[in-house]
Design a protein around this nucleic acid. Sequence first.
DNA 1: CAATGACGATAACATTTGTTATCAGTTTTA
DNA 2: TAAAACTGATAACAAATGTTATCGTCATTG
Lengths: 192, 192
Amino acid sequence: MYNELEKIKKVISHYIEISNEEWMSYSSKFQVKEIMKKEIILSQGDICRDVFFVVDGLLRVFFVDNNGEEKTFHFSFENTFSADYESFLKKIPSNYSIQALEDTTIVLMSFEMLHDGYKILANGEKLGRLLAEEYFFIFNDNIQAIYTQSPIVRYNNLIRKFPNILQRIPQHYIASYLNISSVHLSRLKNSQ
Amino acid sequence: MYNELEKIKKVISHYIEISNEEWMSYSSKFQVKEIMKKEIILSQGDICRDVFFVVDGLLRVFFVDNNGEEKTFHFSFENTFSADYESFLKKIPSNYSIQALEDTTIVLMSFEMLHDGYKILANGEKLGRLLAEEYFFIFNDNIQAIYTQSPIVRYNNLIRKFPNILQRIPQHYIASYLNISSVHLSRLKNSQ
DNA sequence: CAATGACGATAACATTTGTTATCAGTTTTA
DNA sequence: TAAAACTGATAACAAATGTTATCGTCATTG
């Protein structure tokens, strides 16, 4: 418990100043959870009630398209947040599912908690703003990569950014993330 | 002048409560600008110093990829904001250019103004948060469409959402937005 | 430990999509 | 108003990508 909350405190402190008193009362509301590999912690269609902070492990965010095919569109590594943030904020059914790719430790942050934070914490609104901005940056970069880079370039960049990704994530999930078939990715890799 | 600011007040009031006194002092800092068709108001590589609010007209957000090809990835219609929001927030060189597709009236909102607003306005931080969230929603929906929908489905949805888009935007820009060649879009349209 | 399933490479083939060029109609510009 | 640029359709061809199936290896599970 101690370590998990220390980690999330470190991340939050990176965004805003938070006093010890504030942290003491605020952090008591966090919920820590251990989830097993393959476990699904958010199902497409359900409302995303919490933002998940990944303390240790790895999550996969995906959805099932009209043809019944799974599309992976995000991996959540250690020390990052994960959620269907639109579902979370608007309280509408989620378009994504979130699944653990490894045994994972997460800290749950509920909608109520975040919104209480807007009032309770001196810099609560700022935290909300910076979280939204951070999410936006991720998606912005992502969309730009899709428009400007070929799949194999995106693949190489991904590996450069996360060198151990191949040991942790099955290749067909990566292909799905690149929005190409697993056969095609295999071909691209072996013909560069 | 009167009408332009009324429009943006209406949009901002949709996000937060803002008193008349606040609006009086705050709105005086807005800058209204008329730009001509084809004029470029943000150039790739420059820092995006302002968020543009489109009062009337139409903007195109695009970038030039590694092969020297223009990729359109967003159209900004009336009553919406436009910017390279990442460049704007981080004060880093913009990856996008923004160009008017019609004679357009915009209201400029500088970084300093937005940040002053965080302090001056009672709900300033909240406004910043909601703007970031709004931007995030747009990109979220966009990325999801790219992953789950075929180009022709995205095209049809686009037309359903903006029925007069074909009269206002050349088809090859729309093809670029769909991330397909203009020849291919032409084919898809005429073979549904 | 045996059975099952997951994983990634590969081949063969089908389909989609891009590229280049041409043309006719329209709009813009000098 | 004449020339130039822009626009969208179309054809022919090339390249990229998907689909299906097979196979060997490895991990998981009962």
